[in-house]
C-alpha cells in the first residue's frame, strides 16, 4: 500500500501579505524567515509516516506542485521520514487555481500507481481555500474524507476514520482508495531528525512536468479581476484603571455591555 502526502510550500506564519499599487501580491517575512512547509501539512506528513509505522504502508511519497524553491518543502518531508518526494513543476502549471492544481496532483497520484490513501492538510495558509483535497478526490474518483482527526483502522480494503465537525465527531468507514484532509487534532508532528536532514540534503528530487503527467490546460478557471488590501482597522486602546482587580473587572464588564460586546 502506497500513501501520498500532498504538500505545499507557503510563506512563514509571520509573513505579511502586501498588495502593491499595481495589484500584485507579495509575502515578506519581517524577520526574514524563509518559506516553510504549509503548517497544516505537517500533520498530514506525520500521519503519512505513521501509516507506514503502524499500518504497514510500504511507501510514503510527498508531492508538491510549485517552482524549484518548493524542493525545500519536500526536503522537510523527507527529513521527517517520507520515503520519497516528487516535485511537480512546469511553466504550464504557473497561475493554476485549486482545480488546476487538483488536476496535476491527480495525474501524479495515478502515475505513482498503487496509491490507496492521499493525505492533505486541511488547507494551505496562503490561499486558505481548503478546496484542493476534495477537488483532487473528484478528479481521481475517490472518496473524500475531510477534517479527519484520527485514523482508527486500515485493512480489508477499507479505512475507518474519525471526523471532527462543528457539532462533534463522527466515525465513518469508506472503501479504499480515499483522499483524506487532516485537522491538527490528529497528531503531534515530529521534528525532522538530524539523520533525516542528512538523508534529505543528499536526496535528488525527481521533477515531473506536464509532459510526464499527460496533462494540459491546467490554467485557472478563476479570474482575479481585482486584488486589493483591506483597509487598516481603526481603533483605540483604553487602559482600565481601578483600585483592585475586582473593580477593574467590574468596569471592564460594564464597558463591554455598553458596547454590546457581551
Amino acid at each position: 500500500m502506497k500513501v501520498v502526502v500532498c504538500t505545499k510550500q507557503t510563506p512563514s506564519t509571520t509573513a505579511d501579505l502586501t498588495v502593491r499599487p499595481d495589484g500584485s501580491v507579495s509575502w515578506d517575512d519581517p524577520g526574514g524567515k524563509p518559506n516553510v512547509v504549509n503548517p497544516w501539512d505537517e500533520y498530514s506528513i506525520e500521519e503519512g509516516i505513521r501509516l507506514k509505522e503502524n499500518h504497514g504502508a510500504s511507501d510514503v511519497i510527498a508531492l508538491t506542485m510549485g517552482g524549484d524553491e518548493s524542493q525545500e518543502a519536500l526536503k522537510t518531508a523527507l527529513a521527517m521520514g517520507c520515503t520519497e518526494a516528487i516535485l511537480l513543476s512546469d511553466a504550464a502549471f504557473a497561475g493554476a487555481d485549486t482545480l488546476g492544481t487538483a488536476k496535476v496532483l491527480a495525474a501524479a497520484i495515478n502515475k505513482v500507481g498503487d496509491v490507496q490513501i492521499a493525505i492533505f492538510g486541511k488547507s494551505a495558509i496562503d490561499g486558505d481555500t481548503g478546496q484542493t483535497a476534495v477537488q483532487t478526490a473528484r478528479k481521481l474518483g475517490w472518496t473524500p474524507l475531510t477534517f479527519v482527526s484520527a485514523i482508527t483502522a486500515v485493512g480489508n480494503g477499507q479505512i475507518t476514520v474519525e471526523r471532527l465537525l462543528d457539532d462533534g465527531k463522527e466515525t465513518v468507514t469508506a472503501p479504499l482508495p480515499v483522499v483524506i484532509s487532516t485537522v491538527k487534532e490528529i497528531n503531534e508532528p515530529r521534528y525532522p531528525s538530524f539523520m533525516g536532514i542528512r538523508k534529505a540534503s543528499r536526496a535528488t528530487i525527481p521533477v515531473w512536468g506536464a509532459g510526464d503527467l499527460g496533462v494540459d490546460g491546467v490554467g485557472s478557471k478563476v479570474d482575479w479581476s481585482k486584488v486589493y488590501a483591506l483597509p487598516a482597522r481603526e481603533g483605540s486602546v483604553e487602559i482600565i484603571d481601578g483600585d483592585s482587580v475586582q473593580q477593574k473587572a467590574a468596569k471592564l464588564v460594564a464597558k463591554l455591555f455598553e458596547e454590546k460586546v457581551i
Partner: peptide, 15 residues
C-alpha cells in the same frame, strides 16, 4: 553548509 544551516534551523525551531 546547507546541512548545517538546516540543523540550525531545526534546532532553533525546536528550542
Amino acid at each position: 553548509s546547507e546541512e548545517q544551516r538546516e540543523f540550525r534551523h531545526v534546532v532553533h525551531e525546536f528550542v
